[in-house]
Amino acid sequence: MDDLSGASLGQFSLTLIDGCVVATIQSDLHDEVFRRFSENVLAKIEQTRAGALLLDLSNVYVLDPRDFESIRKIMRMTGLMGARSILVGLRPGVAASLAELNADLTGVTAMGSVEQALQAIRGR
């Protein structure tokens, strides 16, 4: 396991596990954080030639539709770089509110935990 920093900001951390970039988000993704976050993530994917990005949201308790749109953008960018992306560990409250707001989930893959996601990727 290899800390890839960004963690100094306390808002997100990036870790490489089994050839996957695991991005753990610690707080709200308002515009400025989001830009830095996406730049960091995409750079790590390029550096490590990771095949997948796991977006770990298990510490996120509130996610509004705009935040979700931002996350979907990162997922699309990751896709353009040839890596797959998986949402991981969404909390029940967050999942319920996104569903209530009828968030568009086309093409979104989600998994319960980082372990499950890694297992699924290995299984391929």
Binding site: L87, A99, A110, Q116, A117
Partner: peptide, 12 residues
């Protein structure tokens, strides 16, 4: 449909 969306987001 909303229930299916929410469970999907939780990886189920």
């Amino acid at each position: 449909i909303k229930i299916t969306k929410a469970t999907k987001l939780m990886g189920c």
